[in-house]
Write a protein that binds this DNA or RNA. Structure first.
Lengths: 137, 137
DNA sequence: CTGTATCCTTAGGGATACTG
DNA sequence: CAGTATCCCTAAGGATACAG
């Protein structure tokens, strides 16, 4: 636990880890857009800049939400993967998406984030796919 | 829909509404701490300052998550209530709390935010209580 | 009690150039 | 390709005083 946190409330703690305007977008790209490489995150619609992206990836690693390894086939590429801790943000991200689509239906959803009205069974399947893709045992 | 938003992704849209380090703490206080008055929010553990609190309350009102009315019994008091839109953040807040308590168990939880392992039935009861308290039909 | 207003400091973040 | 390093600017936010 960090010792500079504002309080011991779990909501407050979560906000200190993921409560900014970029972190969950990277998680979203890992979960639903199949992105794994630095450059792919850079290309997302919101236009994150390289220094900010590098900072968020480092923080995500420090907090144990993702891991990084070299791409075995391309020496100059890095591959980012969700950890179980990161993958376990799935219910939160889904709840967030459903809330927005209920109250801000004007927000068209990229196909990759097409989560609305997924059944629990379908979400379990998605989670299983992600576990395999990211090597979570 | 705002026209200065970064993208049409529902995750991104949600982050623009609740993705900062204070807004969800106010929502938390409304949901689980029974707080309704300006001064009560000020007294929360995280120590929000009055100008920031006023700003967040206004933004929450602009976004339709809360309403404000005068306290009928105390003229100088204002009462803040969740709207249905605000109350519908409950699943998201619960997911956030459960995630933190799974991975950061050192975060002791204030009694008011004691949500872990609540059954769906118990959560439905909490939601029903909040609906009555905040006058959501 | 519920905010505003002011001042001031810091953190966040965009643009860009550059390096291994 | 995957980042770093600068530069610079703005938004966020803490402290405090004060007003209705």
């Amino acid at each position: 636990m960090r010792d500079d946190q504002r309080s011991t409330c779990p909501i407050s703690t979560a906000l200190e880890i993921i409560g900014d305007r970029w972190t969950l977008l990277v998680v979203r790209d890992l979960m639903f857009a199949g992105k794994r490489h630095f450059r792919e995150f850079l290309q997302s619609e919101e236009g994150i800049s390289s220094n900010v992206l590098a900072d968020r990836l480092n923080t995500l690693m420090e907090n144990g939400l993702i891991t990084r390894r070299d791409d075995p086939s391309h020496a100059q590429k890095a591959i980012y993967s969700l950890t179980r801790k990161g993958l376990d943000l799935l219910p939160l991200v889904v709840a967030m998406s459903e809330w927005t689509q209920k109250y801000h239906p004007g927000t068209r959803r990229p196909e990759a984030v097409d989560l609305i009205q997924r059944t629990p069974k379908e979400l379990a399947q998605l989670e299983a796919q992600l576990k395999q893709l990211h090597g979570i045992r």
